[in-house]
């Protein structure tokens, strides 16, 4: 999952998402990294109190698609989205170029 630059991936997106991972409950099974199509999730180089290498998120790339939370066996991932309403769409990133 090479690190996509923020500009490229954010450009076409309509929704901004964010995930939060309860890292002490994460068992480092990595199934979420497989399910995430945006390369948001990766395995940390640190371990939690249970000794698992937990998952960290680069939320800039997150679209809030919920795939990671769906496949997480231990429900440690919460997913949030920024609702892009019509009004705020004008100042959305798409207009910046």
């Amino acid at each position: 999952m090479e690190q996509q630059t923020i500009a490229a991936s954010v450009k076409e997106r309509k929704v901004k998402g964010k995930v939060e991972i309860n890292i002490q409950k994460c068992k480092g099974c990595e199934l979420c990294t497989l399910a995430c199509k945006e390369g948001v999730l990766s395995v940390s180089n640190h371990i939690n109190l249970k000794g698992y290498r937990y998952i960290v998120a680069n939320n800039d790339l997150c679209t809030g698609c919920v795939n990671c939370a769906l496949v997480c066996p231990d429900a440690v991932i919460s997913v949030y989205r920024t609702p892009l309403k019509k009004k705020s769409a004008d100042k959305s990133i798409g207009k910046e170029e």
Binding site: I6, N58, S78, Y80, R81, I93
Partner: peptide, 14 residues
């Protein structure tokens, strides 16, 4: 990192 570029409040999805 989470640069909330748009600045809208987040809504819980899951």
């Amino acid at each position: 990192k989470d640069n909330n570029i748009i600045g809208e409040p987040y809504e819980t999805v899951y």
